[in-house]
Design a binder for these strands. Structure first.
Length: 365
DNA sequence: CTCTGCCTTAC
DNA sequence: CCAGGTAGGCAGAG
């Protein structure tokens, strides 16, 4: 089989936010622990961001309303507010450890990274397994954090392997094992296939990756459109491959907040919108970037998203952007006369670096 | 090309 | 009844 000559490692930190809290507060260990995003509407409004395995045993998972988690969990459960910037710091420390295993690394998110080990291990899966074990034990020794690692011929396969090995797992899928490994997976094991896509495929009787392999490209294109069809077609065969490159610069920055109560009164919303803009501009300046577009995000009482955006001059002063945002939100309300707003936010697009500090790295293969 | 909405990723 | 915050990619309409 062609295209299976690389060695890619996918690193995934287990139940990351909740695990960080466990590690830093040993008294919590062994108890159900839930990291929450409180929305501030009342004492317990908001959603679960991360839950440890003790909490998951009771059916608690990310995205669930906190109130439901509280109904499911026994009295000794621990509820903590999310500390995003702290997890980001811990994440950076872990990523710095991982980076030493290969310079060809991409940080996928706060708790995931993918490394191309091909050169580092000379294409050997035996050596790659040794690397993976060492990485896991180094992260455990230095940060007390458990993680799951997948090693396979490309990023997609390595991620599926890591997912399949959770928690505290290690799964190696060698080139000759790819076909068997893939066919037994459900379609939603493929990254990029979530709830909606899984349901659409199920309507065609497609449940497993083996089923998916039998669907013709033309049919996939009708279901998904061109780009995604191509991805799905290749991923289902273990053949979707792309070089591991460092993340580029941010393309957008946003800040959304939940309103105290549902409303369509501009006076209620202005202060929140202003706070969102301040935060978003602060992030922008931290990144040393300018924005050429600004938009409002409105989330209705029915949890439907409505957005509106417009072009601005880079470096447009705060007051002027604020005026623009108010107009945009006013238009949203005028065009949707029956909606009540639940959350509002600000998004800055068209980002460009201010100085000549192009931190883009590429590898000449 | 611009604009908007949808989907995904789960933490 | 309950539903946070974030970034990126893409499709489709105009």
């Amino acid at each position: 089989m062609r295209g299976l000559d690389r060695v890619v490692l996918f690193l995934d930190l287990d139940y990351f936010f909740a695990q960080v809290e466990e590690v830093e507060n040993p008294a919590y260990r062994g108890r159900p622990l839930v990291v929450c995003v409180y929305s501030g509407r009342d004492q317990s409004s908001g959603v679960v961001s991360s839950a440890n395995y003790e909490a998951r045993k009771y059916g608690v998972k990310a995205g669930m309303p906190i109130k439901r988690a509280m109904a499911l969990l026994p009295g000794e459960a621990v509820y903590l507010p999310v500390r995003l910037s702290h997890y980001a710091k811990v994440s950076e420390e872990v990523m710095a450890i991982a980076k030493r295993y290969s310079a060809k690394m991409r940080v996928e998110s706060v708790d995931e990274a993918v490394l191309d080990l091909t050169d580092a291990v000379g294409g050997s899966y035996e050596r790659a397994e040794e690397y993976a074990r060492r990485l896991k034990s180094e992260i455990l020794a230095r940060k007390s954090l458990k993680c799951s690692v997948g090693v396979a011929p490309n990023r997609v396969l390595a991620k599926i392997a890591a997912d399949a090995s959770k928690p505290d797992g290690l799964k190696i899928v060698k080139p000759h094992e790819v076909a068997d490994f893939l066919t037994t997976q459900p379609v939603n094991a493929l990254p990029g296939i979530g709830l909606k896509t899984r349901q659409r495929l199920e309507a065609y009787g497609v449940k497993t990756v083996a089923d998916l392999q039998k669907v013709e490209v033309g049919v996939l294109e009708r279901i998904f459109g061109e780009k995604k069809a191509r991805y799905v077609y290749l991923a289902a065969r273990g053949e979707f491959d792309e070089p591991i490159q460092e993340r580029g610069l941010a393309k957008q920055v946003s800040k959304i907040l939940t309103l105290k109560r549902n409303t369509r009164d501009m006076a209620d919303v202005e202060a929140v919108l202003a706070a969102c803009l301040s935060e978003a501009l602060l992030k922008l300046s931290t990144l040393n970037m300018t924005a050429s577009r600004v938009g409002v995000i409105a989330i209705t009482s029915e949890i439907k998203t409505i957005t509106k955006q417009v072009e601005i001059r880079p470096q447009t002063p705060y007051d002027e952007i604020m005026k623009t945002l108010k107009k945009l939100l006013h238009d949203v309300l005028a065009e949707n006369p029956s909606v009540m707003l639940r959350r509002v936010g600000v998004r800055l697009f068209g980002l460009n670096p201010i100085a000549g500090q192009s931190k883009l790295t590429a590898w000449s293969d």
